[in-house]
Structure formats: C-alpha cells, structure tokens
C-alpha cells in the first residue's frame, strides 16, 4: 500500500542523497586527490620523467642525491620511490603516469557512453534498426576485448587517441545492450504513449522522454567502464603494445620493473599501488551511485 508521496521539498533530493553516501564520498575524495596530483605533478618535487641518469640506476626509495638533467645540469633530488634500471625517477614517472590513466579512463567512458548510448537508444526505439545494429554488436562482443585493442593499436599506431579508441570500441556493445534494455522498458511507459498521442516527433520522444530516464543507470555503467579502461590501458602498456615505453604510464613502469622484481620490487610496487587505489576509488564511486540513483529506489515516494 503506497503511502502518499510527500512533497519533494521535504524529501532529500537525489543530489544530497548521493552526497551523503560514504562510498561516493570516499571514491570522490580519492579521485579528487589523484586529479590534483596529475595537475600539480610538475610542482611536486618531480623531474622530467623521461630523462635517464646512469649515475642513479636502481637507487632505493628514500635515497637523497643529485639528478643530472638532459642539459647536463645536476639538481638536488629526493628519490622518494627510487629509480629504475635506466636511472629514471619513479616518483616523477608515477605522478605523470596518473595523467595518462585518468585521461584514458575519462575519455574511454565518454566515447563508449556516447556511442553506445546512441546506438542503444536507436536499437531500442527504432524496431527496423534493432536487428542489424544488435547483430553488429554481437559480432563485436565475440572478439576478446584486449585482443581487439591490441590489433587496433598495432594497426593504427600507438598514440593516446588510438589507445582510447581501441579500448572504447570493445566497451560499446556492452553499453549498447544496457541502454537498449532500458529503452525497451521505458518505451512502454504511459508517458511515452502520451507523447505519441500528442503528436511529438520520434526524435524528440527519444531525446526528451526516453534518454533522460535512462541516464542514471548509464552514469553508473560509465564509472565501471572507466575503471576497466584504466586497467586495460595498464595491461596494454605492460604487454608493450600500448603507449611507447618512454611515455610514463603505470603499465610501462611495471613492465620495466618486472625483470628485476626480485631485487628491486619498488619499480612495480608503487605504480601498482596507485593503479589499485584509482580503480578501487572509481568502483566505489560507481557502487555508491548505483545505490543512490537506482530507479527502483527513487521512482516513487514509497510503497512496495
């Protein structure tokens, strides 16, 4: 028996509900910290992450000494995280690596949500397109995601754009399926039928009545796509098929440190910690958003 819905002004708004969720708070907090680190990397006691100094090869974390830059100047430098076998500063590389991971995560999520959302919307609402579009998506899903990404990167050449595209393409079918299933249930809602009866053109119905009501689950899915993209980018780099090895990405740092892992575990450990923390933060944000945005919980005032 539904208890009459109270006016919204008395009910906590969705935003304040989201802001009160601890999972969201922790996720956003950690991510904000990472974004700050990525932006402020040049002013956080770092040197050029690509410069090698033969004199400091494999120094241990906490070593305090001098670092010779490209132009031959020697600067005083604290090796918080030590240096790798080429004499590159790990602290600098990890901090600059944050930029790559966050950019890849964000743009893969944006690209796959936009394209997947659009194709899902069309497949779900336009019956004649459904069959063709979904068979294409089924075909895409039949190829293992990482394999497809490797093939795309080697075909298009390694750059940030190709990596983003290569990771986003295997995610698109998953987003499409989600959005299509949402659209299939939303299109049966009486408010959509009412819009049809009012003579609203099809594209307006799709954008005004269907999309806004599918957006909450789409955002939640976006966070999971983002987390998986950050992981896949690291895997590609680690396997040596992602961005070139001189570019500081967490995967590249770990790949370089793998050979000497027994003697110098710090080369793998620090980027690993950053990677784990980032993915965990994004996933916690996603979990929190799912708990607060789920249409099952906020569709009606109350009732069963």
């Amino acid at each position: 028996m539904a208890i009459e819905a109270s006016p919204v002004s008395q009910r906590p708004s969705v935003l304040s509900k989201v802001a009160r969720n601890w999972s969201v708070r922790i996720g956003v907090g950690v991510l904000a910290l990472l974004v700050a680190v990525a932006i402020c990397a040049p002013w956080m006691g770092t040197v050029d992450p690509a410069v090698m100094d033969g004199a400091v090869m494999n120094v241990l974390p906490g070593h305090s000494g001098e670092f010779t830059l490209l132009d031959g100047r020697a600067v005083k430098h604290e090796f918080w995280m030590g240096a790798d076998s080429f004499g590159r500063d790990i602290w600098s590389r990890v901090l600059y690596g944050t930029r790559i991971s966050l950019i890849v995560g964000l743009f893969v999520a944006l690209v796959s949500l936009t394209l997947g959302g659009l194709s899902g919307l069309c497949a779900g609402y336009l019956r004649w397109l459904d069959g063709i579009l979904m068979r294409v998506m089924d075909g895409l899903m039949a190829i293992p995601g990482i394999l497809l990404a490797i093939a795309l990167v080697s075909a298009l050449g390694a750059s940030l754009t190709t990596v983003v595209v290569a990771i986003a393409i295997p995610e698109i079918p998953r987003v499409t399926r989600l959005v299509r299933s949402l659209v299939l249930s939303i299109r049966e809602e009486p408010y959509v039928e009412a819009a049809v009866a009012l003579g609203t053109p099809t594209w307006k119905i799709m954008l005004r009545h269907i999309l806004p009501n599918a957006i909450a689950p789409l955002i939640v899915q976006g966070t999971f796509v983002c987390a998986s993209a950050i992981l896949v980018e690291s895997i590609l780099s680690f396997l040596g098929v992602g961005l070139p090895s001189e570019i500081p990405t967490w995967g590249n740092i770990m790949a370089e440190g793998r050979v000497q892992f027994n003697q110098y575990p710090h080369n793998v450990l620090y980027p690993g910690i950053f990677l784990a923390a980032t993915v965990l933060a994004v996933n916690m944000l996603g979990d929190g958003l799912r708990d607060t945005l789920d249409p099952k919980f906020n569709k009606r005032g109350s009732g069963k």
Binding site: E189, E193, A197, G199, R208, P212
Partner: peptide, 20 residues
C-alpha cells in the same frame, strides 16, 4: 487525429515523465 483525439491513462504515477 493527434489533434482531435486525446487519451488519459490509468496509472497517474507512470503517465507523466518524471524528468519533465
């Protein structure tokens, strides 16, 4: 037809777009 014939549905909770 759309101009002259209109319909009111059963469930008032689902007949209005919650985002509009």
């Amino acid at each position: 037809l759309r101009k002259k014939v209109q319909i009111v549905f059963q469930d008032p909770y689902r007949s209005l777009n919650p985002r509009q």
